[in-house]
Amino acid sequence: MENFEPEIVAFCCHYCAYTAADMAGSKHIYYPANVKIIRVPCTGKVDTIHIMKAFEKGADGVYVAGCLEGDCHFKNGNTRAKYRVEQVQNILKDLGWEIERLEMINMSAGMGERFASTALEFTKKIKQLGPSPIKIINTEKHQQVAD
């Protein structure tokens, strides 16, 4: 697992987190390339199926990044997203997964540093957790087929 490079999906809202990611870029602040961003108008738009699909397709970690609490461009989309993340964490728990593979993060549009530092922390955490159970199953399947 030494060389494990996790795949991470970040659902970022257009008004804050996506802008913060651009800010991090324009200031050339490093964060791991493992993080791939999907832009959504508001984190309230992020659906359970989107998160589960990301895991199904091989994401080792997923986070939803929205505006600071109380600062949502659409009033309360980010608090709804927080609730949804908790729901999906429960699903993950029921599946026997580590709930830490999914997280809700808040930041304002100007927080390039925060975007980078949270991306870094999250990636580190997922590295420690190792590949997602789906990947392990798939690898085993492949091995069985090979056997």
Partner: peptide, 8 residues
Amino acid sequence: HGCGICAA
């Protein structure tokens, strides 16, 4: 307003 909360 196009936030998509209802869709989710």
